[in-house]
């Protein structure tokens, strides 16, 4: 892992501006890119869940939850990390045939599937 662990300004003490996610950002500092999986009418739900389980090592429950989010909401943020990390995941997803994109995490989108993905 080449992720930089330098804390961002929002993880430092005494600079609280009332964000509720301070503990989350403490646990996962400096991870500003999201890997997004998009819904399409072709990929099998079982296959998408299999990919999430086998590639990311997610439990069946977590994989199915993310898969259902893709299916119902049209997209889901399945992981995040540095730009290089999510780009590498995106190529792997394209290898599996899933429709994946990367995007810079923004504080306003609020469409993350995971609690920790919701960065302020």
């Amino acid at each position: 892992m080449t992720i930089s662990v330098a804390p961002g300004p929002d993880t430092q003490e005494g600079t609280r501006t009332g964000t509720a996610e301070s503990t989350d950002t403490l646990a996962a500092p400096d991870i500003p890119w999201n890997l997004v999986i998009w819904n399409d009418p072709v990929n099998l739900m079982s296959y998408v869940s299999y990919v999430f389980q086998s590639y990311f090592g997610y439990s069946e429950t977590k994989a199915n939850k993310l898969m259902m989010e893709v299916h119902k909401k049209g997209r889901s943020i399945v992981t995040h990390g540095s730009k290089e990390q999510v780009e590498r995941h995106a190529v792997a997803m394209h290898g599996f045939g899933l429709w994946a994109t990367v995007e810079k995490a923004s504080g306003t989108s609020g469409n993350s599937g995971q609690g920790k993905g919701k960065r302020g």
Binding site: E87, A90, H94, G97, W99, A100, T101, V102, E103
Partner: peptide
């Protein structure tokens, strides 16, 4: 579709 754009 096989080789999609990586940034929307």
């Amino acid at each position: 579709r096989l080789l999609p754009n990586v940034v929307k």
